[in-house]
């Protein structure tokens, strides 16, 4: 049974249409909601939490109507906003205990769950220090902890990787994957980066200007949006030729070669081609495509 359902959901602001007859079904698992900034991702989350009324259409969470049963839904949902929301002058422990109590946990349960949750998100000794002195990565973890502390059935995470460096991003993404795999909590996570969401999501929904662009399981996406970037020390053209002979689609991008990454065999082909030319391999990385590039290809197809 779908956890979240929307039907022709529309939200108009005086100046813009944030959501345009959006119909989606979200099954349990990690669901990525991808769209450029202003595509309507945050608006959708606020409607689902019952914080903002829709102009028309219907939405339900756990089969409960978001307008009629708002309080009941909010008891079973965790929400991590995109913006800063942490007081600087209290410690992570004090803050998360307070938010646990605000979710209806008794005092002793709130303290116990706070200790557990902060450990799960990876905050240890620093949790007793005021939040004002934390790095962005640590703040994001506290924000995540307050959304998880009451053991919700679904968490809605709005741009959780915002402002993080590449390492912090990877750690946060791994943590989000664990929320579903280990904790059994369904995750609705938004980002403007398709590449990072497709790594951890079971299902990806792409919206643009409030309208549904695409909704499919991740494997469909992976085919079209994963690329391998190769940079060699010399003989770039020769390596490219060898790879093309081996049956790969190769694009030249300055000093780099961009290959479509179909399966793991691609890595073997690159290794063989580089060895055959006797050159050094400087770079071999999966490229995460910005969502706009996917849109570009879509439009080219039409």
């Amino acid at each position: 049974m779908p956890v979240i359902q929307t039907e022709e959901l529309t939200k108009r602001f005086p100046a813009t249409t944030a959501l345009d007859r959006l119909t989606i079904d979200v099954e349990p698992g990690v669901v990525g909601l991808v769209g450029a900034n202003g595509a309507g991702k945050s608006t959708l989350i606020k409607i689902l939490l019952g914080l903002s009324p829709a102009t028309s259409g219907r939405a339900s969470v756990f089969g409960l109507d978001v307008i009629k049963d708002g309080p009941e839904i909010r008891e079973r949902v965790g929400y991590m906003p995109e913006h800063d929301c942490l007081p600087a002058d209290v410690s992570a422990t004090e803050f998360v205990v307070h938010m646990a109590r605000m979710s209806g946990l008794p005092a002793d349960a709130a303290r116990e769950r706070t200790a557990d949750t902060l450990r799960h998100v990876g905050l240890y000794e620093e949790r007793y220090r005021p939040i004002g002195g934390y790095s962005t990565g640590m703040k994001q973890r506290v924000k995540l902890a307050q959304a998880l502390v009451h053991d919700p059935e679904i968490v809605m995470l709005d741009e959780p990787t915002n402002g993080l460096d590449p390492v912090g991003r990877d750690e946060m993404l791994a943590l989000i994957r664990r929320i579903w795999v280990e904790f059994g909590i369904t995750v609705l996570v938004t980002s403007h980066m398709l590449g990072e969401l497709e790594r951890i999501s079971d299902h990806v929904v792409v919206i643009d200007a409030g309208a549904l662009l695409r909704s499919s399981s991740t494997s469909d996406f992976t085919r079209t949006s994963q690329f391998l970037v190769v940079e060699v020390s010399a003989e770039t053209d020769a390596v490219a030729a060898t790879l093309t002979e081996a049956g790969l689609t190769v694009k030249r991008d300055g000093h780099q070669l961009v290959l479509s990454l179909d399966d793991d065999e691609t890595y073997d082909l690159v290794r063989d081609a580089v060895a055959a030319q006797g050159v050094g391999l400087i770079r071999l990385e999966q490229r995460r495509h910005h969502i706009s590039e996917v849109f570009g290809e879509d439009q080219a197809d039409v």
Binding site: L49, L51, P71, R74, E75, V77, Y79, P81, H83, D84, C85, L86, P87, A88, D89, M99, M102, S103, G104, Q146
Partner: peptide, 18 residues
């Protein structure tokens, strides 16, 4: 003012509290 300045208010209103 603290809840407004640190934008903590949305965390309260995304919970059962009215």
């Amino acid at each position: 003012s603290r809840d407004l300045r640190f934008r903590t208010v949305p965390l309260y209103f995304s919970r059962p509290l009215e």
